[in-house]
């Protein structure tokens, strides 16, 4: 697998604050990479550095095989981006906005422009929007138009910062389907978000940022791999404890955690002892638990120094 985004020792300092503090990202072709982090953890600064908007204090960025920000003119036309919410010229129509954006840089031929705009508007569900100026759009429509702008040149890499912001539940589902569809077509997706559920549903790899440091980067399947314990739901937790002597590690109401990676074996022993079992599953950590274990307190929180 080839690397799509690689950073080495990436640092950005704003005055005395180290907003991004030596991160080594590794995003490969075909990934849907979830870039998680609380507000203020340095996600947006990192995304802006990837796209050449913010210049790193030190460290290297390689984007689609080119060193950023120098290679921007060569590689950025192959990247579609949605950065911190959409932005458009309010007095112009959505179509006109897309045409202007496409004409503003290299890699978008004017011959195919009309057709490409029709296609992406169809894709994001704005085909019938007509000549209305963007200032009359709802937040969800603007978000869709921003996504359309990112898709305009069939990019190899999509860098999306909070793409479902402002969308209603149906809209979120639509965008998720669209991203999965594009991914099947070979697009690599770099998704920056603070919504754990969104990342858990979509992503194949996850990186977690905490106070400017990358505290975790791995396959989602590895992070949420079974822990080697089985979760039993039973109306009589005390009898489970008595039967499986010493193997019970935790009891929480009717939920009992039992050591042992084979639910069938646990079930057989409980049933043979005549204990009712309502539910049985391998214990897996949720992404939330993994992330909370890896990060500290919220970065919005500002405690007094002792």
């Amino acid at each position: 697998m080839t690397a799509v985004i690689t950073t080495r020792g990436l640092v950005k300092r704003f005055g005395r604050l180290r907003a991004v503090d030596g991160i080594d990202l590794d995003v490969r072709t075909g990934d849907i990479y979830g870039f998680l982090g609380a507000n203020g953890s340095g996600k947006t600064t990192t995304v802006r550095m990837l796209l050449g908007l913010v210049l790193p204090t030190s460290g290297e960025i390689e984007l689609l095989g080119g060193r950023m920000p120098r290679a921007g003119r060569r590689v950025l036309p192959r990247v579609g981006a949605l950065i911190e919410g959409p932005a458009h010229y309010g007095h112009l129509s959505g179509r006109e906005n897309l045409a202007l954006l496409d004409a503003a840089g290299p890699g978008g031929s004017w011959r195919t422009r009309r057709r490409r705009i029709d296609e992406v508007l169809e894709q994001v569900g704005l085909a019938g929007v007509g000549r209305r100026p963007v200032k009359a759009y709802s937040l969800g429509m603007r978000q869709r138009l921003g996504l359309a702008g990112a898709l305009l040149r069939r990019p190899e890499l999509l860098v999306l910062d909070e793409p479902t912001n402002g969308l209603d539940p149906q809209g979120i589902t639509e965008v998720r389907e669209l991203l999965l569809d594009l991914h099947r077509g070979g697009t690599t997706v770099f998704l920056s978000s603070h919504l754990l559920a969104e990342v858990e549903q979509l992503c194949s790899r996850v990186g977690v940022l905490d106070r400017g440091r990358l505290v975790l980067q791995d396959e989602l399947a590895t992070l949420t791999a079974p822990t080697g314990a089985t979760v039993v739901h039973t109306p009589t937790p005390d009898r489970v404890r008595a039967t499986l002597d010493g193997r019970v590690t935790a009891v929480d109401g009717q939920r009992v955690v039992v050591l042992g990676a084979d639910p069938a074996e646990v079930n057989a022993r409980l049933v043979s002892a005549g204990i009712a079992v309502n539910g049985l599953a391998l214990e897996r950590p949720t992404l939330e638990e993994v992330v909370l274990a890896a990060t500290g307190t919220s970065t919005d929180r500002v405690d007094a120094r002792p």
Partner: peptide
């Protein structure tokens, strides 16, 4: 102020 600058530069307009 409108936020369109970041999209122009990421396009990249140069």
């Amino acid at each position: 102020q409108a936020g369109t600058l970041r999209y122009l530069l990421a396009r990249p307009a140069g």
